[in-house]
Amino acid sequence: MIFINSIGSITPNKTIENGHFQCVEPLYKELINPIQLRRMSRILKMGLGASTICIQNLPESKIDAIIVGTGLACILDLEKFLFTVLEGNEQSLSPIPFINSTHNTVAAQIAFMHKITGYSNTFCGADSFDSALADAILLLNEDANQVLIGGIDEYSEYHFFMNSEEHDLKNAQFGEGAIFFILEKELKDNSFAQLIGVHSFLTKNKKCNNNLFEIIKTEITLFLKKYELELTDIEIFVSGKNGNCFSDDIYDILQRDFFPHSDTLQFKHLCGEYMTSTAFAMEHTARHLSNCTEKYALIYNHFNLVNHSIILMKTSK
C-alpha cells in the first residue's frame, strides 16, 4: 500500500493576474539560501520552495528518489535563450538561461539542496505527472521506502499560441503550479490518503464524439476492474472540467452515465488549466479525503482531448 504522507505546494489559490491563474509565492528566503536565490529562475524557486515545504512537513525524512513531472519544464528560460538566438544573436550569449532551461534542473537542484544521492528522473509533456506517479509506484514496489514526487509548470507565452481560435483549449483559463508529495509504504498519523493507482492514455481524435466517449469509458472500467472495483464504489468523482465548451462534455457525460451516485469535486477553478494539473488534483483530493468519511476517489482529466489520465485514491483512515 502507498500513502501520501506529506504535501508541499505553491499554487494560484484562485488568484488571477494578467489573464491567467498565477501562483501565490511564499517568501523564498525562508526556504532557500538567499545567496543562491538571486540566480534562480522563477520555476526553480517554485519547485525548490514547494519541495522544501514538503520535506519540512515530514520530519526525519530520508528520501530515496526524486521524480519530477513537468509539461514544459523551464519554458521561460528556454524561450529567453531561444529568442535571443532567433533574433540573430549567436555570439557572446550568457549560458545562465541555457543551463537553467535543462529539463531536469528542478529535480537536480532539489537533490543538490537536500543532498539526496538516490534515483532521479524527470518526465515531460502533458501526462508527465502521471508518468512520474507510475514510476514512483514502480520504485516503491522495488525497494524504495520514500519517494519525493512533484508536478511543476510555469505560465508562459507558449500558452498564447495554444489559445488560438481553432484550438480545443479555447476559452480555458491557463494556470500553473508546483506541488510535491512524499509517498511511503507506511501508514502514519499524518497520512493524507492512500494512492491506489494511475493510468494514462492517448487518443488521436481531437473531437468530442461518441467514439471518444466509448474509449474513455472502457479505459476507466478496465482500470477499476484491475483493482476489483465497480463504478458504484467511487464516492468522489474528481473532474478536470476547465470551462471550455468544446471539451467539457466528456466530464458531464461521465458524471451522468458513470458517477450519478458520487459527489463531484472540481479543481481547475482554483489552479487553471495546465499540463501537470493532475498534481493539483491529487493534492486537492488528498486533502479532501483526509477530512471526510468517503472511501474511494477517482480523478479523471484530459489535456486537449489527447492526453487522458485516471488516478485512483482511497482514504487512509
Binding site: 529539463h103 531536469n104 532521479s120 524527470t122 515531460c124 509533456g125 508518468s131 493510468h199 492517448l202
Partner: peptide
Amino acid sequence: SLDISDCTEKIADYFGIRSNVSTISTA
C-alpha cells in the same frame, strides 16, 4: 514543438501505442 513529448506521441501514434507513453529528459 516546444513540448518535447510531441515527438514521442507522434511515434506512439504511428505504431498505435496508446498507453505507457512517456518522455524522459535528464540532459
